[in-house]
Design a protein around this nucleic acid. Structure first.
Lengths: 221, 221
DNA sequence: GTCTATATTAGGATAGAC
DNA sequence: GTCTATCCTAATATAGAC
C-alpha cells in the first residue's frame, strides 16, 4: 500500500522518473512555481502521460511524502539503542538534516502545503511528534546517565526547541544566505544544536565545548 | 516615501481597506489561496477598482510588508536602552511575537514569497539580521553585567538560535495544533525562549527558573 | 504506456464608460 | 474612484488515437 520506489522492477519506470524530476524542480523553484506541464516537459514526456501515472500534482506530492516518511521513520526508529556520549548522537542529526534538505520544498511552505493536501496533515504531525519524542528520549537517557544536569521540565522544553530548530534550520540559513553550500549549512546546524547542551554538562562542559569546536573546525577548512 | 496607512486623511480610504482585508484573508487561507478577485469580492468592490489602487497582488503584499517593516523596526530599535534583569526583556518578545502573528501569512511561506517579490528579499534579510543583532546586544549586556556566564561564541550561537525560534515559533506551534489560541501560544513561546537562559545563570539560575515558571503559570489558568 | 489535441477553469490584468 | 466588460495567459485535467 505504500509506494514502491525501490528496486522491485527492472525498468527505469516512468512513475519514478516523474517523482524524481518533480522533487528536483520543487526544491529548486518551489512547489507552487512548478506546473505538471513543466515536469512533463523536463522529462520529455507528454502531460497526458504524466496524468496516466498520477491523478495530479497533489498525487505527486503525496508520492514524494511517502518516500520522505519512510526514510525519516527509518532514521528515527533505529537509534533508540546506544546513546553513549553526547557527541555520539551527531550522526543522527546529520542524517535527519540531509533528509530534510532532500525534501526541502516541503518544509519551505509547510502550512500551505498541508492545507492543500489534508491527508498529509496527520502524517506530518506524527513525524514531528516522533522527532520530538526521540529527542526527548535521548536527552532523558543522558540525564539518567548523569551526563546532563537538567530538570524534567527542562528536558521537555529543550526537546521542543531542538525539534523546532531541526525543522527550520535549513530554511532559516537559506534565507540568510541562499548560496550557502549544503554541507556547510548542515554541519553548522549540527554544531549549533549540540552546542546548546554545553551549559548542562557541568564540569565536563568545558571539555565538551572544546571537543565540539574541534569537530566543527575540522570540516570548516 | 513609505506607505501612509495611519491617521493622515479623514476618509476610510479604499486603499487601506484593501490592505486590511487582504491581510486578514492571507492569514486565514494563505496568500497563495487568495486571489485579487476574492479580495475585491469580500470588500464588495470591483476587481477593476482594486487594480486602480494596486498594480497587482504583489503590490498589495509589498504594501503589507511596508507596514510590517515599520512596526517591527520601531520595536527593535527602541529597547536598546535598559536591559535591567533578564526577565524584564520578556515584553519585547511579546510584542515581536504579536507582530509576527499579525503578519503570519508572510512567515508561512517565506521562501516562496521572497522569490516572488524579489524586492522584499534584502529588506526581509535586513530585518532578520537586525533581530539577531538586538538579541546579541541584549545578551552581551547581560554577560557584561555578570548575569550570564557565557562565552563570546556562546553568545553568537545563542542569539542565532533565539532569532530562529522567534521566526518560526508561531508556525511550528500552529502546525502541531491549529486550534491553539494566539495568547497561549505566544505566552508559551516567550517562556520557552527565556527558559533557555537558565543554565547560564549560575547560582541565580534556580531562583530565575522558579520566577519564570510562576510567570508562566500566572497566565495559564 | 504514451502521444496529440482539446476542454475547462481561474486568476491576473486592462480599457473605457460613468 | 469606481464599475462593467473583457482579454490574456497559464494550469489542470480528460478523451481518444496509436
Amino acid at each position: 500500500m505504500a509506494s514502491k520506489s525501490s528496486k522491485s522492477s527492472p525498468r527505469p519506470k516512468t512513475r519514478d522518473r516523474i517523482l524524481q524530476t518533480a522533487l528536483a524542480l520543487f526544491n529548486e523553484e518551489g512547489e507552487a512555481e512548478v506546473s505538471t506541464v513543466e515536469i512533463a516537459a523536463v522529462l520529455d514526456i507528454s502531460p497526458g502521460n504524466l496524468y496516466y501515472h498520477f491523478k495530479g500534482k497533489d498525487a505527486i506530492i503525496e508520492g514524494l511524502f511517502d518516500d520522505f516518511e519512510e526514510e525519516i521513520r527509518q532514521v528515527l526508529t533505529a537509534p533508540i539503542a546506544k546513546p553513549l556520549a553526547v557527541e555520539d548522537n551527531w550522526i543522527y542529526l546529520y542524517i535527519i538534516f540531509e533528509e530534510i534538505h532532500d525534501f526541502r520544498f516541503f518544509y519551505n511552505a509547510l502550512p500551505t502545503l498541508l492545507d492543500r493536501c489534508p491527508s498529509l496533515q496527520p502524517r506530518f504531525r506524527r513525524l514531528m511528534a516522533l522527532k520530538q519524542d526521540v529527542a526527548k528520549a535521548i536527552l532523558i537517557s543522558l540525564q539518567k546517565a548523569g551526563v546532563l544536569a537538567i530538570s524534567q521540565t527542562g528536558v521537555d522544553l529543550l526537546a521542543e526547541r531542538i525539534a523546532l530548530q531541526i525543522t527550520y534550520w535549513i530554511q532559516y540559513c537559506s534565507l540568510k544566505d541562499p548560496n550557502r553550500k549544503e554541507a556547510a549549512l548542515i554541519h553548522e546546524g549540527v554544531f549549533s544544536i549540540l552546542s546548546q547542551l554545553t551549559p548542562w554538562l557541568g564540569e565536563d562542559g568545558i571539555a565538551y565545548a572544546t571537543l565540539l569546536e574541534e569537530f566543527y573546525e575540522s570540516r570548516n577548512a
